[in-house]
Design a protein around this nucleic acid. Structure first.
Lengths: 148, 148
DNA sequence: TGCAATTCAATTGCGCGCAATCGAAATATC
DNA sequence: GATATTTCGATTGCGCGCAATTGAATTGCA
C-alpha cells in the first residue's frame, strides 16, 4: 500500500520545500539586511567580495550561479552607492573587475552578527545545519549534472 | 581549533545552499515545463489547483507562501490563456475564486512524468529526498517563527 | 443601526533571474 | 597576418516576489 497515491502532491515535493525555504530565508534576512541597506543577492555578492577582492563579473557570477543579466545591474546599483568600484582590466579589456571601496569593506563588520542570528533561529544545532547544507549542495550538483 | 574561522564564508552557509539549490531546480524544470508552456511558479499553482479547484486567491497564496502581488498577475496570465477562470464569489464579493478550465485540467496528464524525472536525476533515493524535504519544512517553520 | 476596523484583491514600484542578443576584444586557425 | 571563432559584459524583455497603498466589501462593536 503506497503512502501517497498522488505523484503531484505539492507537500511531498522536494522542489517546493526548497523553494519555500528559500523565501523564508529571504524574509528572515530582510530586516537584518535592511540595516545594512542590502538586498539578499547583494549580500551574497559581498560575501564573495569580502573573501576575494578584484574578481571579474564572470568569476563572481560563477561563484553565485548567476549570469551577467542579473549581476551587471546589481553591481551598478552598488557602484552608484559607492560600495564597489568597477574597473576594466588593463590586460584584457573584455573583463570588468570589481573592487570594494572602503565603505563596502566597512559593511562587513555590521554583517558579522547575522549568521549568529540564523544559528539562533535554527535552534543552535550547527551539526544538523551542516548536514543539510551538504545535502543541498549534492542536490544542486545532481540537478545541474542532469541538464542534458 | 575551529574548522572555519570565517563566520561569513559563503560555502558554509545554509542559506546559500538553499538559494542555489532552488535555482538549480528551476533550471532543471525549465525544459520540462516549457513543454507544458508553464513557468515554475505557474506549475506550483497548478499543483494546488489540481488538488483542489475553486480556491480563493488568498487560499492559493497561503498554500504557496506568496501574496496577491505575485499571484494576481500570474493568474491573469493563465486566464488569458484559458487555463483557469477567475470568478467573484457570490456570497462574499471580496473573494475571487480560481477554477480550472478543461484545458487547465488536461495539463495534469502531461505533468505526471516530471516527478519521475526528478527522482531519476536525484539517483532514485526517495528515502533521502523525503528526509531532506522534512528537514527543509522544519527549517522554513523555524525561520518563519523567528520573524518577531 | 451606524461607524470603525478588518479583510480581500488589485495595483505600483523596484529588484532580481534568465533567455536572447549584441558589440567589442581576444584567441585560434590557416 | 587576415579571418573565423570564442569570450566577456552589457542590454532588452518578461515573469516573478514583495512592500506599500488603494478601494470595495464585510465584520465587529457600541
Amino acid at each position: 500500500m503506497a503512502k501517497t497515491a498522488d505523484p503531484l502532491q505539492l507537500d511531498s515535493m522536494l522542489c517546493f520545500a526548497v523553494y519555500a525555504a528559500g523565501h523564508a530565508f529571504t524574509r528572515f534576512y530582510k530586516p537584518r539586511l535592511d540595516a545594512l541597506g542590502l538586498t539578499y543577492p547583494q549580500y551574497l555578492a559581498f560575501l564573495v567580495l569580502w573573501e576575494q577582492d578584484g574578481l571579474t563579473v564572470k568569476a563572481l557570477g560563477d561563484r553565485l550561479f548567476l549570469d551577467s543579466g542579473t549581476i551587471t545591474p546589481l553591481l551598478k546599483r552598488l557602484e552608484a552607492r559607492a560600495l564597489v568600484r568597477r574597473q576594466r582590466d588593463d590586460q584584457d579589456e573584455r573583463l570588468v573587475r570589481i573592487f570594494l571601496t572602503d565603505q563596502g569593506r566597512a559593511l562587513r563588520a555590521q554583517a558579522l552578527s547575522i549568521p549568529l542570528q540564523v544559528g539562533e533561529a535554527l535552534g543552535g544545532d550547527a551539526e544538523a545545519a551542516a548536514t543539510m547544507r551538504a545535502g543541498l549542495q549534492q542536490l544542486r550538483e545532481r540537478l545541474d549534472a542532469a541538464l542534458e
